[in-house]
Simulated scan of single mutants.
Amino acid sequence: MSLSVKEDAYWSRDARQLLAEPGSSEQGLSTELAGERLSAARQRSLRSEPDRQALRLFAHQFRSPLVLILLFGALVSLVVHDWTDAAIILAILLGSALLGFSQEYRASAALAALQRRLALTVPVLRDGQLVTLPADGVVPGDVIHLSAGNLIPADGVILEARDFLVTEASLTGESFPVEKRPGIVSPQAPLGQRTNCAYLGSSVRSGTARMLVVRTGRDTAFGAIAERLAARAPETEFARGVPGDPGRASYLRWRSASPTWG
């Protein structure tokens, strides 16, 4: 079974089995094997989609049928020279669209800011040699070295640790650092109790460790949050009748992005 399969409770398995499955070892991947995996890993990266551009986001505010009807009404008012009604309708539509755009643009900007945090380098074992690579060059099966101050570039299991404390507040809400060490954890353990794993989006507070990369990009716990932030929740019949309501958009986005750990 591939290590990138989300149903695989890798935190409950022996590290030696995990090292054997992807063709990795204590000395890391070979350059050739890593190159083969890199293209597939980049297809699942956390980069922004083109449709998140500002103009597209603004144009999206006018897709509602009710908005199109009101626009048609405004055009009719202009044709018959009813300037007052046309101005009122257009002002309401523009204000509503701007408010909706503001909410979605801020959410997209927040997601982009999270992604920019991942623009880091990491020491990786390749062909038995420790080399420094961009974080987006890490693939499942890599063995990486982590130390105090590092941002963790992927999800994985700890192979070796020394006084290794990790801050996971962005994932679990726990403000205090958590000690990570090698071992096996129950398959039912929630994310916050997987003391043998470290996750993308967390940071190293102190100590050093070696970690086997298991999941990257969208397959990580952090990636699941990013996908829920980017996804649009299905609109109800009521929602379709309220164009550009920023409060509704914010609530639906919050509900769709709220993680359930376990």
Rank of each mutant, 00 (worst) to 15 (best):
T220I: 07
T132E: 15
R248Q: 13
G23L: 00
G28I: 10
H60F: 10
L57I: 12
R218D: 10
I88P: 08
V213K: 05
R63D: 13
A257T: 07
L78K: 04
G247Y: 05
T195K: 06
V122P: 06
S256E: 14
E227H: 08
S39D: 09
P246S: 06
I225H: 04
R116L: 08
F101V: 05
A161Y: 05
V166C: 06
G241H: 13
I225T: 03
E160M: 02
P259H: 00
E21Y: 01
S12L: 03
G247L: 14
D155G: 14
V242S: 01
A113E: 15
E104A: 13
S2M: 09
R240I: 09
V5N: 15
V185S: 04
A239G: 09
A15G: 02
A209S: 11
L151D: 12
S30C: 11
D245A: 11
S175Q: 05
A9L: 09
D142A: 11
L66I: 15
L90Q: 06
R16A: 15
S25K: 06
L57C: 03
G28P: 13
E235A: 12
G141A: 09
Y251I: 12
L90P: 08
M211T: 09
L19Y: 07
I158P: 03
R116I: 00
Q193N: 14
V143P: 00
V5Q: 12
D155W: 04
L29T: 06
L171F: 11
G100N: 08
Q17K: 07
E227Y: 03
S12G: 10
F62N: 07
A97N: 09
I225S: 01
T220W: 02
E179V: 11
Q43C: 07
L151P: 03
S108Y: 13
L57Q: 13
V139A: 04
F62T: 04
E174V: 02
A148Y: 05
A110E: 14
L130C: 04
A154R: 09
V67F: 13
P182C: 03
L94E: 04
A119N: 13
L90G: 01
P22K: 03
A198W: 04
V131S: 09
D163T: 05
D8R: 15
L114W: 03
G207A: 04
A119Y: 04
P190L: 07
T208Y: 00
V124M: 07
L93A: 10
A169E: 14
V67K: 01
T260S: 08
L200H: 03
P259Q: 01
E227N: 08
D14A: 14
E160T: 07
G217E: 06
A119K: 09
V124G: 06
I144E: 06
R13W: 13
F101Y: 15
D163H: 14
L229D: 07
Q17P: 00
W254K: 05
V79N: 06
R117N: 13
V185G: 01
M1N: 13
V5I: 08
D163W: 01
S64T: 12
T84V: 14
A249K: 15
A169G: 04
G156D: 07
G95V: 05
V185N: 02
S30N: 12
Y105A: 05
R162K: 10
L33M: 11
S96N: 15
P65W: 11
A231V: 04
L94H: 06
Q193K: 14
R194P: 11
L99I: 02
R210S: 08
G137E: 14
Q61L: 04
P134L: 03
